[in-house]
Write a protein that binds this DNA or RNA. Structure first.
Length: 226
DNA sequence: GCCAACGTTGGC
DNA sequence: GCCAACGTTGGC
C-alpha cells in the first residue's frame, strides 16, 4: 500500500470518459504579496501569476525488464505497447503527484518519448502519442494490482492515467549515457539540454520537455552516437 | 507547518 | 547490490 512508482501499461480500459475533476491538492497558484509590514492598506499586491508553462512534449518511463513488485511483474517495454490491440494502452500505475499532474496536462495528439528505465541500457526507445486525456486509473482500487492504493477512495480518486499509442521506434536507440554527456556539455556551454528534466528531476516518471529539448533529441536520431 | 525518519527511484 | 537523491509521512 505504499504509494508508488512507475508506470505499467495494460490494454485500454473502457471508454467511459471519466471526468472527475478532483479536488486539487497540489497545484496552487502562487501569489506574491507585497511587504507584510505595509499595514493593511495598499493591496497593491499584485500577482506575479507565474503562469504555468504549457508543455507539448513528454517523456514517460517504464521498465522493459522483468521486476517483481508485490509479487507482480511490472515489466512493460515499448515492445509490449506495440503488441497491444491497436498498439494502444493505458499508462496506469503512476503514483506520484507531480507525474500525475503532468499527465493531466496532456492533450490528445501530443507526442511522448517512451523511455526504458531500470534496465541494462536505459534510454529513449521510441515515440508514442497521447490518444486519450487523463481519466481515473482503476488500478488504484484493485487489491491485486501492483499499485493498489488503499488510501484512495472511489468518490475521490487520487490517481489518473492517459492512453498512449505506439507511433514508431526511434531510428536508433538514444541511450541515457549519451543524453547525459550532452546535458553536461550544454550545462557548461549552453545548449538545448541544459535543463532537461531527465537530469534535473531524475526520479520523475512522467516529465515534460520543451520544444527545444524535444527537437534536439529528435535530431540525434540521424546522427552518429557521439 | 516543521522536519526527521523512512521509503522509493533508478543509475551505476 | 549499493546508495544518493529526494518525495512522503507523521509526530509534535
Amino acid at each position: 500500500m505504499p504509494p508508488k512508482k512507475r508506470a505499467r501499461v495494460k490494454p485500454e480500459q473502457g471508454q467511459s470518459a471519466e471526468h472527475q475533476d478532483s479536488a486539487e491538492e497540489v497545484t496552487k497558484v502562487k501569489r506574491k504579496t507585497s511587504n507584510p509590514k505595509d499595514s493593511g492598506k495598499k493591496s497593491t499586491n499584485v500577482v506575479a501569476q507565474a503562469e504555468k508553462p504549457i508543455f507539448c512534449h513528454w517523456l514517460m518511463k517504464s521498465e522493459p525488464e522483468t521486476r517483481f513488485e508485490n509479487g507482480i511483474d511490472v515489466k512493460f517495454g515499448i515492445e509490449d505497447l506495440k503488441a497491444l490491440p491497436n498498439q494502444t494502452g493505458c499508462w496506469d500505475g503512476v503514483r506520484n503527484y507531480q507525474a500525475r499532474n503532468f499527465m493531466k496536462d496532456m492533450k490528445v495528439g501530443q507526442q511522448a518519448f517512451f523511455y526504458h528505465s531500470n534496465c541494462k541500457e536505459p534510454g529513449i526507445a521510441g515515440l508514442m502519442k497521447i490518444v486519450k486525456e487523463a481519466y481515473v486509473d482503476h488500478t488504484q482500487f484493485d487489491k491485486k494490482d501492483a499499485h493498489y492504493d488503499a488510501s484512495s477512495k472511489m468518490e475521490n480518486p487520487k490517481w489518473f492515467m492517459v492512453d498512449v499509442q505506439f507511433e514508431r521506434m526511434m531510428r536508433r536507440y538514444i541511450p541515457l549515457s549519451e543524453l547525459k554527456k550532452l546535458h553536461l556539455q550544454h550545462k557548461a556551454k549552453g545548449g538545448a539540454l541544459k535543463d532537461m528534466a531527465l537530469f534535473t528531476r531524475a526520479r520523475l516518471s512522467v516529465q515534460p520537455l520543451t520544444s527545444e529539448e524535444f527537437d534536439f533529441v529528435m535530431s540525434l536520431e540521424d546522427q552518429d552516437p557521439s
